[in-house]
């Protein structure tokens, strides 16, 4: 067993790094695209708002796996071929964007209307209202849900293994195919995800407590 671990661990660890990379890139895309989405969602032009709303509903109502399959296999059939890594980044990023947009929206709507009215009453236009009144207060509200979404994204990367994107789950499957030891390997993989996700989850919990009772 120890000898197996010696051969496995370096491979699994490098795959874990790939997982983290994948997660961070998709997350960055999600954070940025989500901001655009929420801007569209809250726009006064109805077709923009409706389109963004439909997108968010479509993403949140379907599994990420189906989205990845469509992007990787479906688009290839229509002529748009890409590597599994690219498909994973686009798919997971587009997926995250929808959830992030909803988090942003909840944050914006948590600011009491009265403050926005007061800001307008002293002559601020919308961009200023956002810059000085909404966003500074929004930050504390959206930070914990955004962090939780990051943790979700980390676990979601495992699904990309099913389109053969290079990350931890795929590497584990390859090792299982070689060694015929699925129990040990999949448990180790699970523990590695745990080692990443659990501390992050506790950190978020601490963050939430600190934000609720700033001392």
């Amino acid at each position: 067993m120890a000898r197996n671990l010696e051969t496995w661990m370096p491979l699994l660890l490098s795959a874990a790094v790939q997982t983290i990379e994948l997660m961070l890139i998709a997350y960055a895309i999600g954070l940025v695209a989500g901001a655009f989405l929420v801007a569209m969602r809250l726009s006064t032009r109805r077709w923009l708002a409706a389109t963004a709303g439909a997108y968010v509903t479509a993403i949140r109502g379907t599994p990420a796996l189906a989205q990845l399959f469509f992007i990787y296999f479906g688009l290839a059939e229509l002529g748009l071929v890409m590597s599994s890594y690219q498909a994973a980044i686009i798919g997971l990023g587009a997926n995250a964007a929808a959830y992030v947009a909803e988090i942003y929206r909840a944050g914006i709507e948590s600011i009491p209307r009265g403050q926005v009215e007061a800001a307008r009453a002293i002559g601020m236009r919308t961009p200023m209202v956002y810059r000085y009144v909404v966003i500074p207060q929004m930050v504390t509200v959206v930070l914990p849900p955004l962090c939780n979404q990051g943790i979700v994204l980390l676990k979601e990367t495992s699904v990309a293994s099913l389109i053969a994107a290079p990350e931890l789950m795929l590497r584990t499957r390859e090792l299982v195919a070689e060694s015929y030891m699925p129990l040990e390997l999949y448990v180790i993989a699970a523990l590695m995800y745990f080692a990443l996700a659990f501390p992050l989850a506790q950190a978020v919990r601490l963050l939430e407590q600190r934000l609720r009772h700033p001392r």
Binding site: K155, M169, A197, F198
Partner: peptide, 23 residues
């Protein structure tokens, strides 16, 4: 709660379906 929220569902299913079969 913390364990089952931290591991991906895919990993759990693999453990249950492939892993347990070996024992």
């Amino acid at each position: 709660v913390e364990f089952f929220r931290a591991i991906p569902v895919l990993a759990l299913l693999f453990i249950l379906y492939f892993g347990l079969a070996t024992i």
